[in-house]
């Protein structure tokens, strides 16, 4: 594929959802920025290279002896699936799944606590009116989302929230990974168009037994902040264009 064709495809992909997305004057606030993957294959050239090169630490190939850990004890006391931390794929799936919920329910906070380091952080987009970032742990994030849901209910607005990952860039070395994960949020999984999109920057760390989320920082798409083509599905990363 030549470069102009790739660019044209990227622009076409970008333009359509953007135009549709910003019809509402005030898109509802995005409380989570996180979503279920729903079993779809995510195109991630870096991860493919990585997967060929080395087994995922902490994954099924990990043969290191298990040692008792406080975090592991905390984990076992929750209802979270035990294998959420088994791999980069599974922990990202758990992150998106735990924040998604229908009108009748709320995010699965136990599951989310089960994948974050005890001091793990969530950093939502900064409110333009505030001087400083809001840095939350899972408890603080739960509080924030609960308030947001209560406010929506009071106004008669929808509260359901389904977020899914649509593209991913992964860099891993040993026990650390950073993931740039592009998401779409919908009110119902069957909605044709998302009401918002954005990118989660997710830092992961492996304690020798399993993966943990250390920090999630994100921003959402705005007319003046479009998602760059290389972070959308089926894009060819610029470093690959240069190489080939």
């Amino acid at each position: 594929m030549n470069k102009p064709a790739v660019l044209a495809a990227a622009v076409a992909f970008c333009a359509a959802p953007l135009a549709a997305q910003y019809q509402p004057a005030n898109p509802p606030p995005n409380p989570g920025g996180l979503t279920p993957i729903g079993g779809q294959k995510i195109h991630d050239p870096n991860a493919e290279v990585e997967a060929q090169r080395m087994p995922t630490p902490g994954g099924p190939q990990d043969r290191r002896p298990q040692a008792p850990s406080k975090d592991a004890a905390r984990q076992s006391s929750t209802h979270a699936p035990d294998n959420d931390g088994a791999s980069v794929d599974s922990i990202l799936a758990a992150l998106y799944a735990s924040v998604s919920h229908d009108e009748a329910s709320s995010p699965n906070w136990e599951r989310m606590r089960g994948i974050f380091l005890q001091v793990g952080m969530l950093i939502p987009p900064k409110n333009p009116r505030s001087e400083l970032f809001t840095v939350l742990d899972v408890d603080g994030f739960e509080q924030r989302v609960k308030e947001s849901i209560a406010a929506s209910k009071a106004k008669g607005d929808p509260t359901s929230f389904f977020e899914k990952e649509i593209a991913r860039r992964t860099d891993c070395f040993g026990n650390v990974c950073q993931v740039f994960s592009t998401y779409e949020s919908r009110r119902a999984p069957s909605d044709e168009k998302p009401f918002v999109r954005g990118i989660n920057s997710i830092q992961l760390v492996n304690d020798g037994h399993r993966w943990w989320v250390a920090s999630v920082a994100w921003d959402q798409e705005r007319p003046d902040n479009p998602i760059p083509a290389q972070y959308l599905p089926n894009s060819v990363p610029s470093e690959y264009l240069k190489k080939n």
Partner: peptide, 24 residues
């Protein structure tokens, strides 16, 4: 080794939010 450095900008400056690394 390799550092993963998560940075956020408040519109005026950048901040290190999280620094995680592993050694070779």
């Amino acid at each position: 080794g390799v550092h993963t450095i998560q940075l956020v900008s408040d519109g005026r400056r950048w901040w290190i939010a999280s620094l995680v690394w592993d050694v070779e």
